[in-house]
Nucleic acid binder design. Structure first.
Lengths: 192, 192
DNA sequence: TCGTTTTCCTAACCCAGGTCAACGTTTTCG
DNA sequence: CGAAAACGTTGACCTGGGTTAGGAAAACGA
């Protein structure tokens, strides 16, 4: 069943049939309805999630407002690596924006897998590196670009997001209010 | 000589005399004058740096302006982990804000060390995790707080920065102009 | 030591984005 | 299907921070 995941993993490491089987064994399928939360603020994140179909976003709740951190579509990975690592409660909530199918890898299962099949240590490291590169990209995105530039970059680099995600979530991802995003879009339509 | 580094490392892993010697052997001392650059935009970051004394900051140059990302005082580590990992040129520059003494760990030396003394793999992982937690903290700092809140948090959590770093660098770290930081400070003095 | 930077502050004015409120459209779901 | 909720847009007005232009004091370097 988790062939998609395994194919994805096979892109950065070689795995034989036994290893594939061992990995498959710990993939726990899970489905979420639209708007359902997979993790909420205060929980400890004890898993990594692979999105088979659908879409997730994570967000912070700050004084009543939601600040969206990232969107995840099919064939991408999500985990709150900080909470996963340290066992501390997360400040993020993770929500499905569409009906979503996932595989969950529980931390305990993963650690057992590392012991029985050390090849997968590499998997762990790659996940960590991706998590790092992800937040770093996000930081540079926020510090180095204006709201309008952020919108244009998103439009250029991830048009799928604009197509599939309601605009007010995109606004919160860009760090502006829905009204402002609406104005930015109008400005860009007129000015070219 | 690099006893400070070794003591620091000993806090998260146990190392015997042989390992200490092997590690010491790859520590390359380096001094920087005030304002000198250790790495500039476009370079590949092939080292991790341990600050013995003094202070570093890294920054992005964006349309003539500098956006400071972080400050590093004595006994802390800096590396552009993304460039270090991928071999891609960095977008950051790293500069000494005071006369600064460093130990540099070159990537090739580190990799050799991992082979001869696998214990140090743990060192690598811990560095990676810290790098991750560092940028993640930075992202939350930027997304979830206003300029004034960011200043107050800095004042509360890292008063040393306020004491030792010129105010215009702090402004650029907070994501505002020096004039704005000056106003924020005035506001806080008056209002309590 | 003395001139040159560097650093910090102030004030007047400007603008991107926030706030509030209203309104039309689309989606959702009983 | 029809009511209710969610969504996107617009307008009027406000505000935090940017911009520009000073000027004084502290730190630096020849």
């Amino acid at each position: 069943m988790p062939d998609v995941v395994l194919d994805q993993i096979a892109q950065f490491m070689t795995i034989n049939a036994t290893e594939r089987a061992a990995f498959s064994a710990i993939c726990r399928p899970r489905t979420l309805r639209k708007k359902e939360l997979l993790l909420r603020e205060g929980d400890v994140c004890r898993f990594a999630a692979f999105v088979r179909t659908g879409c997730l976003r994570y967000f912070y709740s700050v004084e009543g407002a939601e600040h969206t951190g990232q969107f995840f579509f099919e064939n991408s990975w999500y985990t709150d690596y900080a909470s996963f690592l340290t066992g501390e409660p997360t400040r993020q909530s993770i929500q499905a924006l569409e009906p979503t199918e996932l595989f969950l890898l529980h931390r305990d299962d993963l650690e057992a897998l590392y012991r029985t099949h050390p090849t997968f240590e590499r998997f762990g490291r790659v996940m960590a590196e991706r998590a790092f590169l992800g937040v770093r990209h996000r930081t540079e995105f926020l510090t180095n670009l204006s709201a309008e530039e952020r919108y244009r970059q998103l439009l250029r680099e991830r048009p799928k997001v604009l197509e599939r995600v309601p605009q007010h979530y995109i606004a919160s991802y860009l760090g502006v209010k829905p009204e402002s995003l609406s104005r930015i879009r109008k400005r860009l339509l007129g000015g070219g």
